[in-house]
Amino acid sequence: MNWRLLSTHAILLIGMVFMTLPVWVAFCTSTHAPETILRDGLQFWPGSNFAETYRQVLFVDGGVMKSVLGFDMLKNSLILGVGFAIGKVVISMLAAYAIVYFRFKLAVPLFWIIFMTLLLPLEVRIIPSYEVVSSLGLLDTHTGLIVPLIASATGTFFFRQFFRSVPDELLEAARLDGATPWRFFKDILVPLSKTMIAAILIIMFVVGWNQYLWPLIMTTKEENYTLVIGIKQIYQVLAEGGELPQYQKAFALTILATLPPVLVVLIFQSWFVKGLVESEK
């Protein structure tokens, strides 16, 4: 061990602490009693209140909000994350297939329409989007929540890029083998894209789960809250003060909102990294 290697490890350790400590503290604090937190501040080691806090948050009526259980919010988040990921993959794969593998009249204008969506994030057209969804009667529905988020074409571009890297000869061989467009898609292209699909599913699940602004304005009823929205509400309650601020519940909810996407990313780390890096090329 020379000093250079030591300094390298020191820098990395500092980085590690910087990136993980806040979440660790949030977790530890969530496992303590509210009195402890109010008296001693944030906690750096797990306490004994874990089961009680999380039970309250997840399953007890009024434990965290007036009318919705943490468990329901978890469910809503899952629906958003999974629905968004699957919807995005299916729709963008179909569109990318048409654009790359077919010669058709409107190919160029349609490509540009799809491309345009990359330029304008939902945030800048949030109010008219809200009005459109509301005039379609889709407020507080899963469709209204998920579908507008799919409008952006990031996935389409990713698959377009990937399809273009597939050797031309495969299509030629398949055509000589008598494959119809649908068969080529189903028998060759989809199986070939398996890892890519997995990678995109993971990334899109995280992106969907973490949506904030859109669910915030889309959901008016508490029962439709996702975790990400829910913690914001509980924080507002905390800020207004009360007899004994339930900080541990706020932290517990934060951990719950973080856990699923983090687990997905950690478990499928190599796919996820590959998908992320490739998709941005």
Binding site: L170, E172, A173, L176, L192
Partner: peptide
């Protein structure tokens, strides 16, 4: 169409279906 011409082709890079 190519499929109906009843021809078969061997490609330079073989073009085997990798999966």
């Amino acid at each position: 169409t190519p499929a109906d011409r009843d021809v078969a082709m061997v490609f330079q890079n073989y073009a085997l279906y990798p999966h």
